[in-house]
């Protein structure tokens, strides 16, 4: 564990707490892509079910339980409790364009051709693009509530912090994980446009609005 990874994980944790706070206080999931949230459930289940056969640390296990539990709870809130506030007509990204290529990539790029490793690769590839339905929705509506942008920023910062973590681990432990690093760089890259608007507008007190 190093500081970059710890801060990254805490940022990930914070992003989910911000999202839950937004949904609970506004009693609405307006502006949140159900498809992205469903993809995160798939990511967490595919990767973290190793809870049952791989023990790393109490920290690691507790985080895995939290991520699986909270992501399922968010889906429940969107699908049942606050269903009327969820508008599928603007959540139109075709997720099969993400699922199928990720499935194929995970069959080609994995560390061992066995179900658990293929699932692990699949979850890494899928996580890297899972935010696309959400960003696509933002692009369509052209604006977002401030709290939704804080959620996205925390999620993007989490990914960005994993990059110095890998650099640090490479130099201190000689560890390199090419699949996670490649997917992680792609994933962070997807946030660049968003970060630009977030840092130049939202943090200056302006509304999050994309140029037409």
């Amino acid at each position: 564990m190093n500081l970059f990874r710890l801060l990254g994980d805490l940022s990930h944790l914070a992003s989910i707490l911000v999202l839950l706070h937004k949904i609970q206080t506004s009693r609405s999931c307006r502006g949140i892509s159900f498809k992205t949230q469903a993809l995160y459930v798939a990511v967490f289940v595919a990767r973290y079910l190793d809870l049952f056969w791989r023990y790393i640390s109490l920290y690691n296990s507790a985080m895995k339980v939290f991520f699986i539990g909270s992501s399922c709870y968010i889906l429940y809130l969107m699908k049942y409790r606050y269903r009327p506030t969820n508008d599928p007509s603007i959540d139109t990204f075709r997720i099969e364009y993400l699922l199928v290529p990720c499935a194929i990539l995970s069959l080609i790029f994995n560390y061992n051709f066995m179900p658990t490793e293929i699932l692990w690769s699949f979850s890494i590839f899928l996580e890297s693009v899972a935010i696309l339905p959400q960003l696509f929705m933002l692009q369509r509506t052209g604006e977002a509530e401030a709290i939704t942008t804080h959620y996205l920023a925390a999620l993007g910062i989490y990914r960005a912090l994993y990059i110095p973590n890998w650099i640090y681990r490479y130099f201190t432990e000689g560890v390199i994980d090419p699949i996670a690093v490649t997917a992680g760089i792609v994933q962070t890259g997807l946030y660049l446009d968003f970060f630009y608007v977030y840092f130049t507008k939202v943090l200056q007190g302006q509304k999050f609005e994309l140029p037409a």
Binding site: H12, K64, Y111, Y162, N165, D177, A180
Partner: peptide, 10 residues
């Protein structure tokens, strides 16, 4: 070393 990384990251 081991060709399969530990997967100790979240």
């Amino acid at each position: 070393g081991n060709p399969v990384p530990q997967h100790d990251e979240l």
